[in-house]
């Protein structure tokens, strides 16, 4: 791990409060993840990649925006690792960068329909934009 990777890792761990060494590599998080097929990096990879400081590829990955934050991985993890919190921390790190908002107000019109609940837009902006 070089210095930059170390700093990134520390930041992610601090934000998420997750300790990736608790993971015993059982893969239950990825076995239960409903968004698995849409993700380039899967929940168990988030855990092991953060642990090894391999965070740059995660920051670039679309996987960040496919996590449903449904907490299935958190509740079903036998070791209480809480992978979803890692995904969230990495995503925040990505969207907090200048001009890195993943969802922009002008994109919204396309997804709106008559029944769209307000909750959907609020949640999406909170997840995808700073």
């Amino acid at each position: 791990m070089n210095n930059k990777e170390k700093l990134l890792k520390e930041e992610i761990l601090r934000m998420s409060g997750v300790n990736p060494v608790k993971c015993m590599r059982c893969g239950k998080c990825s076995g239960t993840c409903p968004a698995y097929d849409e993700m380039e990096y899967h929940p168990h990879q988030f855990v092991s990649m953060v642990e090894s400081g391999d965070i740059e590829p995660l920051l670039e990955s679309k996987s960040l925006y496919r996590c449903l934050t449904c907490f299935a991985c958190v509740d079903r993890c036998p070791r209480n690792v809480e992978p979803a919190k890692l995904v969230e921390a990495v995503r925040l790190l990505a969207v907090r960068k200048q001009g890195a908002n993943h969802l922009k107000p002008e994109d919204v019109a396309a997804v709106l329909d008559d029944d769209t609940p307000q909750q959907l837009l609020v949640s999406a902006f909170r997840k995808y934009a700073k």
């Binding site: 968004a35 849409e38 496919r66 449903l68 299935a72 997804v111 837009l121 949640s123 999406a124």
Partner: peptide, 22 residues
């Protein structure tokens, strides 16, 4: 107790559709 697809319907309507159908 599985997810319906939630807010990801904005990002990937196909994923949300699959989850809701499940």
């Amino acid at each position: 107790n599985e997810c319906c697809g939630g807010y990801v319907t904005v990002e990937s309507p196909a994923l949300a559709a699959r989850k809701s159908a499940d």
